[in-house]
Design a protein around this nucleic acid. Structure first.
Lengths: 135, 135
DNA sequence: CAAACGTTGACACGAGCGTGGTAAGGTTGG
DNA sequence: CCAACCTTACCACGCTCGTGTCAACGTTTG
């Protein structure tokens, strides 16, 4: 075989994926191998490493490929990233968890706008209503 | 009706979701309303805002609820976050896009270890093989 | 008390994911 | 040249997602 790259079957054996899955992973955009002039997939050291790591990642955290695809999208699309962060800022469930805050840099302005919209906290409402009309 | 919180049907009307979906969204952990003493869901201003924003977010970027759930998980689980980032660092497809790099702070060490494993770049391999054994 | 609304739980269903297989055809290498 | 490999394109299957509906049962309110 070749100098430095493995064919799909060889790569399958050394990474633990099936050839079928390697094609699937490629189509999902996660690991896209180079191609020979005749169209054969060529997996280099980098790709093999990524395939193994991907395997670990999915198993260890019980993720789907789509999750990693989404994470990739998050990394590449700044607009999406800030939209998602913006949504997180309004988090009412756990008001003290600022871990999301330093997840990335975000503008103060938009968060305050959202917080301003939230006049009453859910806890307050619950107590209020427990002794009130509904509860 | 109550002072400040809406019931599930009312919330459904003002947010555009169906009552069924509001329960589904709750089960997925994205928007969890308070409960009255008798178990009725109580959506406050904050929740309603989040529901509307969520709607926009999903439609604008064509996301699934699971994507947002995953993003939430990314924000809360630092271990997962760094594992995913670590995986991104080995990105062979587009070596020039450092956008992922400043996505969050990351340690130099692990990345270099991965880069060291990648001796040849896919492009090099392809060219090499095109005029070589396989291509 | 009865109507209107809330709750959970189940059945259903189309679409997409993660897999496998198989068929039809090109490439490589002994 | 022929076996062994590669390619794409399909069919299939079980599972989850997003969504609706319906049943059985509790709550609120006129």
């Amino acid at each position: 075989m070749a100098t430095d790259a493995l064919t799909i079957h060889e790569s399958a054996e050394t990474t633990g994926w099936s050839p079928r899955m390697l094609r699937y992973i490629e189509r999902s955009g996660l690991v896209v191998p180079a191609r020979s002039a005749s169209g054969y997939r060529l997996y280099g050291a980098a790709e093999l490493q990524r395939l193994r790591t991907l395997r670990e990642l999915l198993q260890r955290f019980d993720l789907g490929l789509s999750d990693v695809v989404f994470a990739l999208r998050l990394g590449n699309d700044a607009e999406l990233r800030s939209a998602v962060e913006e949504w997180f800022e309004a988090e009412p469930a756990k008001p003290e968890h600022v871990a999301v805050g330093d997840w990335l840099s975000w503008e103060q302005g938009k968060a305050e706008k959202l917080l301003a919209a939230a006049t009453a906290t859910p806890t307050t409402i619950a107590t209020e209503l427990t002794g009130g009309t509904i509860g």
